[in-house]
Measured scan of single mutants.
Amino acid sequence: MISLIAALAVDRVIGMENAMPWNLPADLAWFKRNTLNKPVIMGRHTWESIGRPLPGRKNIILSSQPGTDDRVTWVKSVDEAIAACGDVPEIMVIGGGRVYEQFLPKAQKLYLTHIDAEVEGDTHFPDYEPDDWESVFSEFHDADAQNSHSYCFEILERR
């Protein structure tokens, strides 16, 4: 099963200049909980913004210009990325925008964090048809001392 995991502000903004323009430790914990011990696929820009392999996960970098870091697996196509994951129950696609666009048609599940923030962004989550998805989990949280904005975790499964 292919799943996408993303944090989205208003207007589906997911990033600005290779960074997330908010401070939500709870979302980072949600991300870790849902990706640990699963292969993660990301684009080169996302890889560069993280700066290191995510521990406890097979890191697969999709790029037309593969790098030389041998701590991760470099691939040039969506099919190659899927094959590099091996026989696993769930593959997690973690961004960025172009990689989400490439995998959305193949995805069966979306793990979304909806952030109540209007922020400037240069990267967006692809538009998706809500009628194609069923919400199977939703959990709202107010902003607090650690988390700069209110947010809602949601899991959607393709109908």
Rank of each mutant, 00 (worst) to 15 (best):
E134Q: 11
A26E: 02
G97L: 01
R98P: 00
P89K: 07
G121K: 00
D144N: 05
V10N: 05
K58D: 09
L112Y: 08
V10I: 02
H149A: 03
H141I: 12
Y151C: 14
Y128D: 04
A19H: 11
R44F: 04
L110A: 03
V119S: 12
T113C: 06
L24F: 08
I155H: 06
E118D: 06
S135C: 06
E154T: 15
H114T: 14
M20A: 00
D127H: 14
R33E: 12
V40T: 14
A29P: 00
E17A: 04
A81C: 14
P25I: 13
R98Y: 15
H149P: 13
L156H: 12
F103E: 00
D69S: 10
P21G: 03
N59S: 10
A9R: 00
A117D: 09
E157Y: 05
E90N: 06
K32H: 03
V119E: 15
S49D: 04
H141W: 06
A29N: 00
K76Y: 09
Q146G: 09
R44V: 05
A143M: 10
D142W: 11
Q108N: 10
T46G: 02
D132A: 08
R71I: 09
L110N: 01
G121T: 00
R52V: 06
N34T: 04
N37K: 12
E101R: 09
E129L: 09
W133P: 02
W47V: 15
E48V: 13
D142G: 11
S77N: 10
L28W: 00
I91H: 04
P130R: 14
D131P: 09
F153C: 12
H141P: 03
F140E: 14
I115C: 09
W47E: 04
M16R: 07
N23Q: 07
V75T: 08
D142Y: 10
Y111V: 12
R71V: 05
Q102V: 14
M92W: 12
A7N: 02
G43S: 00
F153R: 03
R158K: 08
R33S: 11
D79N: 07
P89D: 03
F137M: 11
D127R: 15
I82V: 09
N37A: 05
I115N: 08
I155E: 07
S138I: 14
R98G: 14
L112F: 12
E139I: 07
